[in-house]
């Protein structure tokens, strides 16, 4: 197993080594030591390998990830798994703002809390947060699923399009055009699969579902005050 110590190796060298891997590489399990909050660690991966980061990561860790599994054994800074396409990112601590922002696919699991704007403009990613999320999460969310075992902050799902939001705890307030929706069998099934994939210990019936009221899709003068 390759071990890269960032106290000795430059971050760009690490990322270059990871970017040089071929799809059929035998070096499928990497460990990164002494990350010390550096930015853009393991960003832009495009092969099915596992990268463990032994500590806290800075901004945009595992950004643009495709296929790879990235495990952060500490906290992650702003924009973890930003624009992820596929694969899995697992944050064992807390995540800062804009976790999973604009991401098209893959699974982001956060064992702790995520702060403001979690899943902002999400476009197909599945996010499971075992703690709570900050204000303005899922702002303009377009597709994908956000599951929160704890509470959600102010203005959840403001100007949401079609993403599905499941929250077990309290929602401080819903944003414009976001409403509570009926939990049907298909939603229970989806939620159950995601909880299982994330290793989250929670019952499907403890959650409530939120989504778009679809009132702001097209401009209508009667809705002007809601924008």
């Amino acid at each position: 197993m390759p071990v890269v110590n960032l106290a000795e190796t430059a971050k760009r060298e690490l990322n270059a080594q990871l970017h040089a891997l071929s799809v059929d590489t035998n070096e499928t399990h990497w460990r990164v030591e002494n990350p010390q909050g550096q930015h853009a660690l393991a960003a832009g991966l495009n092969v099915p390998v596992t990268v463990e980061i032994a500590g806290h990561a800075g901004y945009y860790c595992a950004g643009m990830n495709s296929q790879a599994t990235v495990v952060i054994e500490g906290n992650a800074g702003v924009g973890v798994a930003e624009n992820m396409m596929s694969g899995k990112v697992h944050v064992k601590g807390d995540a800062s703002q804009s976790a999973g922002a604009t991401a098209h696919g893959g699974l982001l699991v956060i064992d702790g809390d995520a702060s403001a704007r979690c899943g902002i403009s999400m476009k197909g990613i599945d996010i499971v947060v075992k703690g709570s999320i900050g204000p303005m999460s899922a702002f303009m969310a377009q597709s994908g699923t956000l599951v929160v075992l704890g509470d959600a902050g102010d203005a959840l799902g403001d100007s949401i399009y079609e993403a599905r939001l499941f929250v077990r705890g309290e929602v401080k307030s819903l944003g414009a055009d976001c409403v509570e929706k009926e939990m049907r069998a298909e939603h229970r099934d989806l939620l159950h699969k995601l909880l299982e994939a994330a290793g989250a210990d929670a019952g499907v019936d403890e959650f409530r579902r939120y989504g778009s009221a679809r009132g702001l899709y097209n401009f209508h003068v009667d809705n002007a005050s809601a924008y």
């Binding site: 010390q36 909050g37 550096q38 930015h39 806290h56 800075g58 901004y59 906290n75 800074g77």
Partner: peptide
């Protein structure tokens, strides 16, 4: 301790 980024605290 406070930092704009975690890097400042390491």
């Amino acid at each position: 301790a406070f930092g704009s980024e975690y890097r400042a605290l390491v």
